[in-house]
Each structure stands twice: as structure tokens, then as C-alpha cells.
């Protein structure tokens, strides 16, 4: 993998160049006390030392609402897809891991053209975390750093960013005149930073190694924890809404007001919501919140790992931050493991 450095002062000129290139540029902007991924208008708006964003950049590749089919007669057609190249600038390692999982899901078996086309026009510029967020536990999920799944990866070092080039598309968007070959000292700093990243998130730890989570959950299908979560969980689906790896969706049809046509669209759905499994007869397959919570944690800690050899939870901590009932994956997984130890 090609390794370079770029000075911190070069970021604004680089972003200026990207914005002038006609590409859509997404970056992190500060919104009162929080951060969110948004379209950049000016190069100086981009924040690179944020802790965590409200939503992951998933929302650009897999939008909350996406038209699948437009129709005005009996036959439906796919609406015209946007093709402009897009750069998402400043994606944290855990969110890159989440996108890798989504790539695996939408490529598996019958391919999903909507996701894959959005993905193909997206160039990911990652950045290592300098300020960990309060609830992140990504080191224990193996997602505090990243080896692949980016086009360009930046690691803050003294006065500069260490640059790893992950693809030809990534190389193309680098400002040729502003990047240099790293010195031995800068390489050493980079490796040091990668190790420090593991320590930086040591505050919150899932004690069970990721590859042992499936077996842990398998053993605890009937653990009293699920009933306890039923008492606490409000079934609001906030965890699903902010999760970078949740991709379940609903499909609905909508007619134009004059009934001349309409669209069939998909929108994000969440397995914690009661209607998620409601069928025409009114039957709900996972009625109880104990079962819905168990399903959520089994998907994150078991099914995704078994199916795609990647963790279904990347430890970003967003669900913990937004849960009104203080349900925290670290506590859930550790409580199951504690029973194990006894």
C-alpha cells in the first residue's frame, strides 16, 4: 500500500481543489454541540478532529428513503440514478468497517443495484480518531483502526497526516503537489498512533473476543437478561436509527395526489419496532421486546459474524448515547459473559 504524508496546512487547499473539481464533497460539520456528515459548501467547514457524528455516512450510500420504481402506467421503471462522483471526507475507522459490512450484504447473492451504484460513485477518505467519544468501544470490536475499505486513509501525526492510499480512485483525488514521501520518523509516528488507538478506547470494553461472541450468544438464548431488557426497552428503535450497520428496510407504494402514477420506495426500518414483523393477518412474529432485543444482539454479535466474518457491531457507541433506557451493548455482552465465568 502506498504511503505518503500531507501537512495539516494542506487540508484546506486540498478540499478547495476537491470542491472545484465538480465532485460532491461530504464532510463533518459542527451543528451546535454535535457533529454530522453533510454536503460541504466551503473547504473551511470540515471538522477533522470530531469525536463521533450523529449518523454514520451510511445515510449517503443507503439513504433513509430511496425510490425503487416509478410508474405512471402498468409498468414500473427505475428512476434515473445520480452518477456524479462523491467524496466522503473524514470517516472514522469504525464507520469504514460498517460500510465494509454493508458492501458484503448488498453484494451477497442477488446484488442490490441501488446500493452498489451509490457505493461505486463514492470515494471514502478515512481519518483516525483523535478524540474518542464517551461511549465508543471499538477497540474491543477490532474496529479502532482499519487496514482496508478506504480509498485514502489519514492518520494524524505531528503537524501532518500520514496517508495510506487504498485504491486508484483514492490516488486520483490526492493533491499531487501537496503530498510527500514520509520520513522514517513519520512512519514510526504512524505505527505508534495505530497502537495508541487501541488504548484510546480502553474505557469501554466488551470482554469477549469478537470471534467468540457467536458461541457466547448461542449459549444464552434463554438468559434472564433478555427478560430484563424487555422491562427497560421502550421499543422506540433509536438504536436501529443511529446504527451504522443496520440496513433492514421496509418497502411502500405511494400514489401521486392526482393518481396519475406513483413510486415504490424503500425506507429504513428497525427490528426493535413492533410492526417490523407484522403480517397481513395482524400476527407479529417477534411480539415481545425480549425477543426483539435478543434478535438485535444476535444479529450484531452472531448472525453477521457467521455470515460475513465481520462484526455486526462496530463499537461506535451511538446506540448507547441515544438509548433512553440506557441499554448498552458493552453491558449486555459483558453480563452474558459474567454468567459464563460463574
Amino acid at each position: 500500500m502506498e504511503e505518503l504524508v500531507i501537512s495539516k496546512d494542506s487540508m484546506v487547499p486540498w478540499l478547495t481543489e476537491l470542491l472545484a473539481s465538480g465532485r460532491e464533497v461530504i464532510g463533518v460539520k459542527k451543528h451546535r454541540k454535535r457533529y454530522r456528515f453533510e454536503k460541504l459548501e466551503k473547504p473551511g467547514e470540515a471538522v477533522l478532529d470530531y469525536d463521533v457524528t450523529l449518523q454514520s455516512p451510511k445515510k449517503f450510500i443507503f439513504p433513509p428513503r430511496e425510490d425503487l420504481i416509478a410508474f405512471s402506467g402498468p409498468e414500473g421503471k427505475r428512476p434515473q440514478a445520480e452518477k456524479t462522483e462523491r467524496v466522503i471526507f473524514g470517516v472514522h475507522p469504525y464507520d469504514l468497517h460498517a460500510i465494509s459490512l454493508l458492501d458484503a450484504v448488498f453484494n451477497d447473492g442477488e446484488k442490490d443495484p441501488y446500493y452498489l451504484e451509490q457505493r461505486a460513485r463514492t470515494i471514502l477518505v478515512g481519518i483516525d480518531v483523535s478524540k474518542p467519544s464517551l461511549n465508543a468501544f471499538c477497540a474491543s470490536m477490532g474496529t479502532a483502526t482499519v487496514e482496508e475499505g478506504f480509498d485514502v486513509m489519514l492518520t494524524p501525526i505531528e503537524g501532518a497526516y500520514f496517508v495510506r492510499v487504498g485504491s486508484a480512485a483514492g490516488r486520483k483525488i490526492l493533491p499531487k503537489k501537496l503530498v510527500k514521501t514520509p520520513t522514517d520518523n513519520q512512519r514510526a509516528q504512524f505505527h505508534n498512533e495505530q497502537e495508541k488507538a487501541q488504548v484510546r478506547f480502553a474505557l469501554n470494553r466488551v470482554e469477549t473476543p469478537v470471534k467468540e461472541l457467536p458461541a457466547l450468544l448461542e449459549k444464552h438464548q434463554h438468559h434472564p437478561m433478555w427478560e430484563e431488557l424487555e422491562k427497560r426497552c421502550l421499543g422506540c428503535g433509536s438504536c436501529n436509527l443511529v446504527c451504522p450497520t443496520c440496513y433492514c428496510f421496509d418497502v411502500k407504494d405511494e400514489m401521486a395526489l392526482d393518481l396519475s402514477g406513483g413510486v415504490r420506495y424503500r425506507s429504513w426500518d428497525g427490528c426493535l419496532l413492533k410492526d417490523f414483523t407484522r403480517v397481513g393477518s395482524g400476527e407479529i412474529f417477534r411480539e415481545s421486546l425480549a425477543h426483539r432485543n435478543r434478535h438485535r444482539f444476535f444479529r450484531k454479535g452472531k448472525y453477521m459474524i457467521e455470515k460475513y466474518q465481520k462484526p455486526g457491531c462496530v463499537g461506535c457507541g451511538r446506540c448507547t448515547t441515544h438509548c433512553l433506557a440506557d441499554i448498552n451493548p458493552v453491558e449486555v455482552f459483558n453480563a452474558l459473559a459474567q454468567k459464563e465465568a460463574q
Binding site: C248, D250, D269, F276, T277, F285, Y303, E306
Partner: peptide, 18 residues
């Protein structure tokens, strides 16, 4: 049976076990 929306193992609705 189960609730289903996509039919191709993507929408997650009919997921039981893995």
C-alpha cells in the same frame, strides 16, 4: 412464512437465526 419485502435476503424482515 414471515413478513417479507425484498425476497432476496436483504431487507432483514424474515430473518430467523442466521
Amino acid at each position: 412464512e414471515n413478513r417479507m419485502k425484498c425476497g432476496i435476503g436483504k431487507c432483514g424482515k424474515c430473518n430467523v437465526g442466521n
